[in-house]
């Protein structure tokens, strides 16, 4: 039963989702929207699980005084403060929640994203080597696109932006479409084998697909 019930539910829902795509009737679309609502409801309840997990993980760390436990205190205090600010005082303009969002979350998020610039530079320096013909081609293309994306590229060669644009719209899109076709087929095949119960390893021990070495 532990295996069969999830398999039957997966099969029925999977087939319905595939069929409703072709059925504009209220029966198909209404059912589809209902399932989307269910998914949102399940997601909302799962958030309770997530919050429970957050409290358990950090609470345990604080209780056992594990290394870096003060950070866990910061995490839990921040959580409580945001919840209280949001629920008690609302989250409109000029509220405490809005203030925290603007002055703490915005700079923190922007800082994390900005790290990308540093990491791009260090990764490029460390690994971008013209080891082979293909690698050289990749390297030259990257340099052209980088120059084409900034005004200085046009100062060096007046057609640099057009060359860069061409690289982005022709060879890049061609390669990308090749990858996407493979991805789409792979995703469809994965979905098919899950719907038909061929793939069961996500069901754990009850349906594990065994191991080969």
């Amino acid at each position: 039963m532990k295996l069969q019930v999830p398999l039957v539910i997966t099969f029925l829902v999977g087939v319905f989702m595939a069929v409703q795509f072709f059925v504009p009737h209220e029966v198909g679309q209404g059912g589809y929207e209902m399932l989307l609502k269910w998914a949102r409801l399940v997601g909302a309840f799962a958030l309770v699980l997530g919050i429970g997990s957050l409290w358990r993980t950090h609470g345990d760390k604080i209780r056992r005084r594990r290394p870096d436990w003060p950070y866990s205190v910061v995490a839990l205090v921040s959580f409580v403060v945001m919840v209280v600010l949001g629920i008690v005082y609302g989250h409109g303009e000029h509220t405490g929640f809005d203030w925290v969002f603007r002055h703490i979350q915005v700079p923190l998020d922007a800082t994390m994203f900005a790290l990308l610039a540093f990491f791009v530079a260090s990764a490029a320096f460390r690994t971008f080597r013209a080891r082979s013909v293909e690698a050289t081609l990749l390297l030259v293309t990257a340099l052209v696109v980088m120059l084409g994306r900034v005004p200085i590229g046009e100062l060096l060669y007046h057609r640099m932006p057009q060359v860069s644009e061409w690289i982005m719209t022709v060879p890049t899109v061609a390669g990308k479409r090749g990858i996407l076709l493979g991805v789409a087929l792979g995703a469809a095949a994965t979905a098919l084998r899950i719907i038909l119960g061929i793939e069961r390893s996500h069901l754990g021990g009850a349906g594990g697909s065994g191991e080969g070495e």
Binding site: I179, A189, T190, L192, E199, S201, S209
Partner: peptide, 20 residues
């Protein structure tokens, strides 16, 4: 890309998955 989807078959070598 699709190698991600093939990984399960590759790691398990289960005949059904490999055939797919």
């Amino acid at each position: 890309g699709e190698e991600l989807y093939a990984a399960s078959a590759y790691l398990s070598r289960q005949p059904l998955l490999v055939a797919q």
